[in-house]
Design a protein around this nucleic acid. Structure first.
Lengths: 354, 354
DNA sequence: CTATGTTTCGTGTACGTACACAAAAATAGT
DNA sequence: ACTATTTTTGTGTACGTACACGAAACATAG
C-alpha cells in the first residue's frame, strides 16, 4: 500500500517538441500573449493539458525580473503593550519567506494614540507605487478615506486585527470578537457558582478602539441570554490605562459589592492581575486576553485563570500571504478569515505558539 | 517611521568582482569545496559576510539536479477512527510545498492492529534508498529494530505522534501526553464540585497503544496530587472498541456508583458520548480527545464539554519539514517538539484548524 | 632548466522560463 | 507578380547557481 505521486517533470521544451513548434510559441500560449495562430494555440493547449504541465516556479521567478512591492500599515508596539510585536513578527516572517520570490515588504508604523500619524503614514504609502497593502484599520473614518483612495488606484488591501466590512477589503484576517466574548462567558459559566458576581472590565483610552471591546461584551452577554444563569453581571469602563488609574477604579468597583469573577475585555488583564495580587484578592477568578509576557506571569502565579488568544502572529503572516497569493496566483481569497480562539491556561501556555 | 530591509540582491558575480576572483572560486568557497587557497578563501568569506549574502534558492535548485527522497511510515486511517487522516493531510501539504524544491515523499501505510504489516512496510522502505524517514513508532519493539537499521545506514528519521526516546531519532514531533492529562485534570477541577465522582476511561485494543493512554492518566493524577481536592477518582479499562462492548462496560461502571464527570483518554470519546446520550445521562460532564467529526457532533450537542487536541495535521507537516530542513540546510532540529495543547469547546470549534 | 605533478583558479554549459528581436509565413494592396 | 504590411514563429540571451573541464600558477624532482 503505497502512495506515489509522479509529478511529470517536463517543461516547455518537451511541449514544444511534441507540438512541433518552438519554445517561444509555447511560452506565448502559456502566458496567453498575443501572436499565436488559433490552431497552434489549441494544439499546444491540448498537449499542456495532456501532460498536466506545471510551470517551474523557480525558473519562472529567476527569469522574470518583475518585483512585487507590498506596504504594511500597523501600530507601533508601544511601551504600554507589546501586542503589536506579534503581528509584526508574523509579517516579517512571511516577508522573509517570499523574499526570494521577488516580493518586498515595507512596514509603516503609526501611533495608536494619534490618528494624525495614521493619516500621515497612509499618505506616504499612497505616494509610492505599491501593488498591495496590509493594514490595521483602527480608526474608522481615516481608514475609510484611505481605502477609498486605494480602491480608486485599484490597489488591493487586506485588513488585520479589526474589520470594516463596508470598506471593500480583499480580506479580513483577525479575531471573531463576538465569538470570543461568547467563549469567555462559557468558560466563566464553569467557574461561577449560583448567585455569584461577574465584573466586566473595559480598559481603553481611544474611543475608536472601544467598539472593539464592546463587540466582545456583546458576545459575552449573548451567552447568558442563551443560557440564563443565576448570576449578577456588572461592568466598569476605565478610560485611563496607567496602573494607578486602573487601581483606583477597580478599588471603587470592588468595594461597592463583592465580585467573584472579573472578565477583562482586552490584553490589559495583567494590570488587573497586579491589582488583585497586591490587594490580596487573588482568589477572585480572572480571565482576559492575549499571550503577552506580563499576562503569562500572572497566569503562572494562578492570578489569571484563562487567557484567550487569537494568534496575532499568524494574523500578520496570513495577511501578507493573502496579498501575495492574490497578486501572483490570482488566487481567490476568503473575505473573512477568523483566527482560532485559543484558550491558554498554566498547563498549556508553554506549548503555545502565537 | 519606516522599516526597510534592503536585502542585498547581489549574487556570486558581485562577490567575485569584489574579490578579484572568478565566480567559480566563489562557488567553491560557498559550498566549501576543496581547491582554493587559504588566503583567497578568507578574502571571499569576508566579502560574503560583509554583503550578508544569501544564496538564491531558486537558482540553486534550478541548477542542482540533486533530488531528495523521503519516506513516510504511518497507520492507515481505519474505519474505526479517521485520526490518521489529519497527519496524512499535513504530510501531503508539506510534500506539495517542497515538491518544487526537488523533494519526493512516498507514503507507506501499515495496519494499526497488525504489527507484521509495520515490519513489512519498513522492510520495503529499507530496500529503496531514501535519505530521510518520517514514522509513527506505534510498536516499540518493531520500531526499535527498524530504526536501528536506519541508524546503521545513516538515514535520519523523525518520530511523530508518539516517541521512543532511546531510539536516536532526529526529532519527536507530537503531543505532550503527560501535560495534556494534567490540563484535562485542571479543566475538570473547574467542572467538578466537592465530593463528586470522576471516572477515567481508557478505550484501546492494542497493548502497545495502551502506555500512550497511561501517560495521560499519569498527568491527570499528578494534577490532583499537586492540588488535592475533595473528589473521588475511579477508572475503567475497556479493551473492546466497538460500541456494544463500550456500552456494557460503561453501564456496569456507572451503575456501581454515580459518576459526575468522565475523562476519556483518547479520541474514542464519541462512543462514550453516544452511550450517555442514549442512556439519558447527558448531564454527566464529558471530556476527551481530538477534533474528529463524530466528536464535534457531540460537542455541538453539549454532550461533550471539552476536547483536547494537539494539531495532528501540523504534526505531519512539521515532521516532513524537519527532515527537509535537516537534509538541505543542515539545520539544527530540536529533539522534542511538543505540539500546542488546544482546548476545543462548542464556541471555538468552528475556527479550529488542525 | 626542463619535465612532471599538484594546487589553484577561470571558463563554459546547463537548469527552465521570460522576453526582445529577428526570421519566416501569411495577407493585403497596387 | 511584386512590394508592403501584418501575423506568426524561431532564436538568442539573461536570470543566479552548480559543476565539469581545462588553463594557469606553483612546487618538486631529475
Amino acid at each position: 500500500m503505497k502512495d506515489t505521486k509522479e509529478a511529470a517533470l517536463v517543461g516547455v521544451k518537451e511541449i514544444a517538441r511534441r507540438a512541433n513548434v518552438s519554445i517561444g510559441t509555447v511560452d506565448r500560449v502559456l502566458n496567453n500573449r498575443t501572436g499565436v495562430a488559433e490552431k497552434t494555440r489549441e494544439k499546444v493547449l491540448e498537449i499542456i493539458k495532456d501532460l498536466d504541465y506545471q510551470p517551474n516556479i523557480m525558473a519562472r521567478r529567476l527569469a522574470s525580473k518583475r518585483l512585487l512591492h507590498l506596504a504594511v500599515l500597523i501600530p507601533a508596539a508601544s511601551g504600554e503593550t507589546g501586542y503589536w510585536n506579534a503581528p509584526l513578527n508574523g509579517i516579517r516572517q512571511a516577508a522573509a519567506a517570499i523574499r526570494d520570490f521577488g516580493v518586498t515588504v515595507e512596514i509603516y508604523f503609526f501611533d495608536q494614540n494619534d490618528k494624525t500619524t495614521f493619516t500621515a503614514r497612509a499618505n506616504e504609502i499612497l505616494k509610492k507605487e505599491y501593488q498591495g497593502i496590509l493594514l490595521a484599520p483602527m480608526f474608522e473614518e481615516e481608514s475609510l478615506s484611505f481605502t477609498k483612495k486605494c480602491r480608486a488606484k485599484k490597489i488591493p488591501f487586506v485588513f488585520i486585527n479589526s474589520d470594516i466590512e463596508t470598506a471593500g477589503s480583499l480580506s479580513y484576517i483577525g479575531p471573531d470578537l463576538y465569538q470570543s466574548g461568547y467563549l469567555a462567558a462559557h468558560l466563566i459559566s464553569y467557574l461561577v457558582r449560583e448567585g455569584q458576581q461577574v465584573l466586566i472590565v473595559n480598559i481603553s483610552r481611544e474611543m475608536d478602539l472601544h467598539h472593539h471591546l464592546l463587540r466582545k461584551e456583546e458576545g459575552f452577554r449573548a451567552y447568558y441570554k442563551a443560557h440564563p444563569a443565576d448570576i449578577q453581571i456588572r461592568k466598569t469602563d476605565i478610560r485611563q490605562t496607567d496602573y494607578k488609574s486602573v487601581k483606583s477604579k477597580l478599588h471603587k468597583a470592588l468595594s461597592k459589592t463583592p465580585v467573584d469573577i472579573i472578565f477583562v475585555t482586552n490584553s490589559r488583564v495583567a494590570t488587573v492581575g497586579r491589582y488583585l495580587e497586591e490587594a490580596g484578592l487573588a482568589h477572585i477568578k480572572l480571565i482576559g486576553y492575549d499571550f503577552l509576557a506580563e499576562n503569562i506571569d500572572y497566569l503562572k502565579k494562578s492570578v489569571i485563570d484563562f487567557l484567550i488568544c487569537q494568534k496575532p502572529q499568524e494574523q500578520g503572516h496570513k495577511g501578507i500571504m493573502a496579498l501575495y497569493d492574490h497578486l501572483t496566483h490570482a488566487a481567490v481569497i476568503e473575505r473573512q478569515q477568523y483566527m482560532p480562539i485559543d484558550i491558554i491556561t498554566r498547563e498549556n501556555y508553554l506549548n503555545y505558539r502565537n
